[in-house]
Design a protein around this nucleic acid. Structure first.
Length: 306
DNA sequence: AAGACGAAAGTGGTTGA
DNA sequence: TCAACAACTTTCGTCTT
């Protein structure tokens, strides 16, 4: 499916990501949703027994980026209540008032938070699918009262960070921090807090996921990128990756790949876009050379130049 | 002069008692 | 709650191109 789309029509990027769950193809470079009318291969739920657990779908799809998920219920909207007795009517008024109080508190918060979320995510050019996920996470956090004692912005940032990782379009904590204006520490802390409290399982992010972005900000070739992927795979097999920061590994692999392809970038340049220091790149780089026995290859390259 | 390399000390976070 | 610990950063001096 969508095997025909190879390039992003917007930015020409080749880093497309297919998401079958929601029928989208997303450009990892610019976040453009290229195709959102793919066939839904998901199962069409039907009802065979147990009415209580009915999985019937009706109405518009829920969206978490609207503060009331596109639904919305209010008590006593229809005017029926005026046919009731005074006592009953008062009861409805009370209920209505309560509903108003409870829901406005949460909804007002959500409205603000979702506006903030939109702002941050468009700053980072995140695909809308990540928005949606982040909004969902935030929504759960509010309902569980996890925002109390924390700034709304930091929870938004944490939700977004989590959503990015879940969707394999990781951003670094630094980037989230810059976009949201929340301190890096704080983003990390709320991120850990809400994922723990909500029981969201997050896999350690794959260094490979960082490559596309680094490659495009360094203007490196696709060739170099696939070379870097290759190196990363080898590194993973050699168990060089566990426990290390994924950005550092990705940066080092990219640095080596660039050298091998005669597209040399300085350690400084690579370090900057990856958000790590040269020292870290050097350490990873050394390990790569040792374990993967690449020294000879680099020498060969030099000889060819002469 | 700029980049690469490495040593040493410092930082923030995790882990295990 | 505290100390040990690993990964990473900062800083700085030296070597290479």
């Amino acid at each position: 499916m969508s095997a025909y789309i190879k390039k992003c029509p917007e930015c020409g990027g080749i880093n497309l990501k297919v998401n079958e769950d929601v029928g989208e193809v997303i450009c990892r470079d610019c976040g453009l949703v290229i195709e959102d009318k793919m066939i839904d291969f998901g199962q069409e739920w039907r009802e065979f027994e147990d009415k209580a657990n009915s999985r019937r779908r009706t109405g518009q799809a829920l969206t978490y980026t609207k503060y009331d998920k596109g639904l919305g219920t209010s008590i006593g909207q229809s005017g029926d209540i005026y046919q009731l007795g005074t006592k009953e009517r008062n009861k409805y008024f009370r209920l209505k008032k309560w509903q108003y109080r409870v829901s406005t508190a949460i909804e007002r918060n959500l409205k603000l938070a979702l506006a903030e979320l939109k702002r941050v995510s468009s700053f980072l050019k995140l695909p809308k699918q990540v928005d949606e996920e982040a909004a969902r996470i935030y929504h759960m956090a509010v309902q569980r009262g996890l925002v109390r004692g924390r700034s709304m912005e930091s929870v938004v940032a944490g939700s977004l960070y989590a959503a990015c990782r879940r969707n394999e379009v990781p951003r670094t904590l630094d980037e989230l921090s810059e976009a949201s204006g929340i301190e890096k520490k704080e983003v990390g802390r709320t991120y850990r807090f809400i994922t723990r409290e909500l029981g969201i399982r997050i896999l350690p992010s794959d260094p490979v996921d960082y490559l596309p972005r680094f490659v495009s900000s360094l203007n490196l070739s696709a060739d170099t990128q696939s070379k870097a992927v290759e190196l990363l795979n080898k590194a993973t097999k050699a168990e060089l990756t566990s426990g290390r920061g994924p950005t550092g590994i990705a940066a080092a692999a990219l640095y080596v790949a660039a050298l091998l392809n005669n597209e040399k970038r300085t350690q400084r340049e690579v370090a900057d876009v990856a958000g790590v220091t040269e020292v870290t790149i050097r350490n990873r780089y050394k390990e790569l050379l040792n374990v993967l026995k690449l020294k000879d290859k680099l020498k060969e390259n030099k000889l060819e130049e002469e």
